[in-house]
Every structure is written in C-alpha cells, then in structure tokens.
C-alpha cells in the first residue's frame, strides 16, 4: 500500500508540486498514506469512526502546514506526527473515549502472508492477546506504547510530540510494560 518501489511518481516531486497549491498532487499523497495514517489513528483512539475523523483532520492540518515541510524527515514521519497531535488534541478536548476493542471492529489485515501456518497461528494468538492487553491501558500509557513499541519512536520524539518530558515518557512506558505483562500473565 505504501511501497515506493511501485509508485510511478517520486514522492519528493509530489510534495514539491503540492506545496505550490496543486491539489491533485496532494490527493495522491493522501491516497498513498491514508492506510498508514488511519492505522496509526485507530491504534491511538481505538474507534474506527473517530480514527477516520482523526485521519481527515490530520490531512487537513498537513495541507495547511505543507509549506513548512522542509523534507528533513520523511513525509510519512511528518504526517504521523501530525496524526498523533490530532488524536491527542481530540482526546484531550472532548474526553471522548468510546472503548471499542479492536477485535470488535473489522480486522486489521496482516501484510505478511506467511507460508508457515503454525507460526502464523501463534502470531495471530499473540497479537490478539496483546491487543486486548493494550485496550486495558489508560490512554496516555497506550499512546507511548503504540509510538515506542509499534512505531519505533524514540523517547525524545514521543516527549516532544506529546509535550511531556523524556522522563515522563519513560515512566509511562515502564508502567505500561508492567501493566501489559500483568494483564498477559493474568490471562494465561
């Protein structure tokens, strides 16, 4: 879905064109990144309807701030940071927290179609249990876990984006890991 190898137009060229106000170039960027942004939003807000709103909001913010994008980081990194901000401010302002477990929603597709059925089954079971455990975490802890453990952000990036200190990010992560471990142990 986001495989640059098969994309006919270079992303840097698309960004430069979109920065001149070209909507069709921006539309192509949205098309390429919609699934990645939606996946991140869904992981953060845990509700497909709200995740769609967050995705839309993130792209609108990106369009408005496109002139400030200098290309120091990849576009994907930039739009993901905007998505986290959009999800964070939405939650902070409305307090909306409709807890809809991800397993109740249409399934997230596994992009690795492994021929090893036993391993695939084990992965599925693990993912299911971890998702359930993530659902139990308070929102601030869940956010840092998603960003650090699934998206590989550094403590510094998390702290900067969420407006907290690096120590606070580390403490949240540490507490979240212990909660996850307790939840998974209690389950087995």
């Amino acid at each position: 879905m986001e495989n640059p190898a098969v994309e006919p137009v270079d992303e840097a060229h698309l960004i430069r064109t979109a920065q001149t106000g070209d909507r069709s170039a921006f539309e192509e960027l949205v098309r390429r990144h919609q699934h990645g942004v939606f996946t991140l939003a869904l992981r953060l807000v845990n509700d497909r309807e709200v995740a769609a709103d967050v995705t839309q909001d993130a792209f609108i913010r990106a369009w408005r701030g496109l002139s400030r994008f200098r290309g120091d980081a990849a576009f994907k990194t930039w739009i993901h940071r905007i998505t986290v901000n959009a999800a964070w401010s939405m939650k902070k302002r409305t307090g909306r927290h409709r807890a809809l477990p991800l397993e109740g929603a249409p399934p997230i597709a596994d992009t690795t179609l492994s021929g090893d059925l036993e391993r695939a089954g084990e992965n599925l079971e693990l993912r299911h249990r971890l998702r359930a455990a993530l659902d139990q975490l308070p929102r601030p802890q869940r956010t840092v876990v998603v960003l650090k453990d699934i998206y590989g952000w550094s403590h510094g990036e998390i702290a900067e984006t969420l407006g907290i200190t690096v120590t606070a990010a580390k403490v949240r992560l540490h507490r979240a890991h212990h909660r996850l471990r307790e939840h998974l142990e209690g389950e087995s």
Binding site: I60, A109, T112, N123, R127, R131
Partner: peptide, 28 residues
C-alpha cells in the same frame, strides 16, 4: 513474548474506510 507480539503488530495495516480520500479533499 511481548516483544514478539509487538513485532507481529508492526505488520498489520487497517484499511482506511472507502471514500476517505474524497472526504479529505472536500474538507481542505
């Protein structure tokens, strides 16, 4: 075990709802 589960989660993609691109473009 948790680490392996995180690695597995990294491979997942949630398809965006149909019509999202049009909604974004209409909302610009």
């Amino acid at each position: 075990t948790i680490d392996r589960a995180f690695t597995a989660l990294q491979q997942e993609v949630a398809p965006a709802p149909p019509g999202l691109v049009s909604k974004v473009m209409a909302g610009l």
